Simulated scan of single mutants.
Amino acid sequence: MGDEPVLECRGLRKVFGENTAVDGVGFSIAAGETYGLLGPNGAGKTTTISMVAGILERDAGDVLVEGRVHSPRDGRGKSAIGYIPQELAIYPDLSATENLRFFARLYGLSRARARARTAEVLEVIGLADRAKEPVKQYSGGMKRRLNIGIGLLHEPRLLILDEPTVGVDPQSRNAILESVARLAAEGAAVLYTTHYMEEAERLCDRVGIIDEGRLRAEGTRRELVGLVGENDRVLLTAEGDLAAAAEAAGKLPAVRQAGHGEGRVDLLVESAREVLPAVLDTVTRAGAAVRAVEVREPNLEAVFLHLTGKALRD
């Protein structure tokens, strides 16, 4: 990753009537870094990136792209940005090649460069073999991939993707995530919004958790999980003397908390997968017959619940 941020946001604020959609949001993204805005629908993700992209005027705050203040009237700043919106921005009666060449010319690429970049982008998004077909014959996932390709044509330093996998099939979703990871590896700064926890965990170097227009926390996955503790929860479905089993397990050095209920022993354990054999041996010796084991590792869903008091998909 580069030392200087490609994008820096400070105190972004946007109000619609009596509704404060974004309230004091700030973050930065370096070259080669993928930053995820993780939050439920209506959290303020799209409003935030619309201000970053220069589509929406901000009521307060600053956006700097490559060190320069960026605004909706700043053509130079916009030329450094590739923006892929939730909505499809493609012409269905044209082929993928025709769409890409058209938008390449809008970006100001020469005819020769437009042809070259079209061929390169088709390979990146995996549509080279279907490039001559009318887009209206494409699946939803293929259209999404073309939508992404349009944002890549001018080789932007900052790539902004607003929930690009919503409503796509698993194969296209995987292709999109792989493409985003590859672009970051090649040096692009990526701002990625999602309400899918697994996407944020897979793609993002750092994550900002946003809810009700405010950035509740940000950091690496490890840093965020540390907010709720890095212990794993181990659920044992069992029969026998469960009280004795929980008491015995609670004496193990790695077990932070132990309890029991009807048909189960519930443990909070440090590095559960490493000490699970010792846990099972201990509860068995204490008189419990274990029928099933479930290990729940801490994740961003747990962090979101801890910070906001509600599940990510609420």
Score class of each variant (00 low, 15 high):
Ala116Ser: 04
Gly126Cys: 08
Phe103Ile: 09
Gly108Phe: 05
Ile176Thr: 08
Leu153Ile: 12
Leu153Cys: 09
Ala104Asn: 04
Gln171Cys: 00
Thr165Pro: 01
Leu127Ile: 14
Glu186Lys: 15
Asn174Ser: 15
Gly140Thr: 10
Lys136Thr: 12
Leu153Gln: 14
Arg115Lys: 15
Asp129Arg: 15
Arg115Trp: 07
Val135Lys: 03
Ile176Pro: 00
Asn99Lys: 13
Gly141Trp: 00
Pro156Gln: 13
Glu120Phe: 09
Gly151Pro: 07
Ser139Phe: 00
Gly141Asp: 10
Ala184Pro: 09
Ile148Gln: 01
Leu183Met: 12
Val166Leu: 04
Ala175Cys: 10
Val180Arg: 03
Asn147Leu: 14
Leu109Asp: 05
Ala181Gln: 15
Gln171Ser: 09
Thr97Met: 08
Asp162Trp: 13
Asn147Arg: 13
Asn174Glu: 15
Pro134Glu: 02
Leu159Cys: 01
Thr97Asn: 04
Gly149Cys: 02
Glu178Tyr: 04
Glu123Thr: 09
Val135Pro: 01
Val121Pro: 01
Lys132Met: 07
Ala181His: 13
Ser172His: 06
Ala185Gln: 15
Ala175Val: 05
Ile125Glu: 15
Phe102Asn: 07
Leu159Trp: 08
Thr118Ile: 06
Ala119Arg: 15
Asp162Leu: 11
Tyr138Arg: 10
Gly167Trp: 03
Leu159Asp: 07
Phe103Lys: 09
Ala131Thr: 08
Glu98Ile: 01
Leu153Trp: 13
Asn99Ile: 12
Leu177Val: 02
Leu158Pro: 04
Glu178Arg: 11
Ala175Phe: 11
